[in-house]
């Protein structure tokens, strides 16, 4: 048990705890803040995995842009706590927990988790493939068509958001 493993476990436990706090908070604003904590923990894990570009994009896009959008919408709608609807459905909740446990078990089996695939150390090229240079090179040569289609997707999203969220004509 050396420093790296202890650091990894610290980050992993804080990611899981912030995710649990995220789904148990009554107040949506607190949920958003715990989700941001979770995203920062994930960015640190990406750094441990030598994926520098993904870590930076995680903080910029997820924690910076998407979560600000969520906060903005919650404050725009001025939502209160959802206290009155959570007590009455214990039976459905039990079914939900059982189903989630089954999902967890299935994922564990699907990934072969008790034994795993036997990868105990990273590939020697792991440091160089995570850099901006490597990602950008393959993004602009090998994956140029999906990259351009992404711009079309974002354009469609912009137009769709304006159509959906604008006021109706009288």
């Amino acid at each position: 048990m050396n420093f790296e493993v202890i650091f990894f476990f610290f980050i992993a436990v804080s990611a899981v705890v912030s995710a649990i706090l995220m789904i148990t908070q009554r107040n949506p604003i607190k949920s958003v803040l715990f989700l941001i904590v979770n995203f920062f923990c994930l960015a640190l894990i990406y750094l441990i995995l030598h994926a520098q570009f993904i870590a930076i994009i995680q903080i910029l896009v997820y924690a910076g842009a998407i979560m600000v959008l969520f906060l903005f919408v919650i404050m725009l709608l001025n939502l209160g706590d959802e206290s009155r609807l959570t007590e009455k459905m214990n039976f459905k909740k039990t079914i939900a927990y059982v189903l989630s446990g089954i999902v967890l078990l299935e994922i564990m089996i699907g990934l072969g988790l008790p034994l795993g695939y036997g990868f105990s150390s990273m590939h020697p090229r792991a440091v160089e493939i995570g850099t901006v240079e490597s990602i950008g090179k393959s993004l602009y040569t090998e994956f140029i068509l999906p990259f351009e289609i992404t711009s079309l997707l974002l354009l469609a999203a912009i137009v769709g958001v304006i159509v959906l969220a604008k006021k109706k004509f009288q």
Binding site: T86, L99, I107
Partner: peptide, 28 residues
């Protein structure tokens, strides 16, 4: 930092995915 086996990352990912499933099924 190459000491952590792949299984740890996969287990963390599976646990977080299940927490997301619990949230989708229980929150209103």
């Amino acid at each position: 930092l190459t000491e952590i086996p792949l299984n740890y990352y996969l287990a963390l990912s599976a646990i977080m995915f299940s927490i997301g499933v619990v949230g989708v099924l229980t929150r209103r």
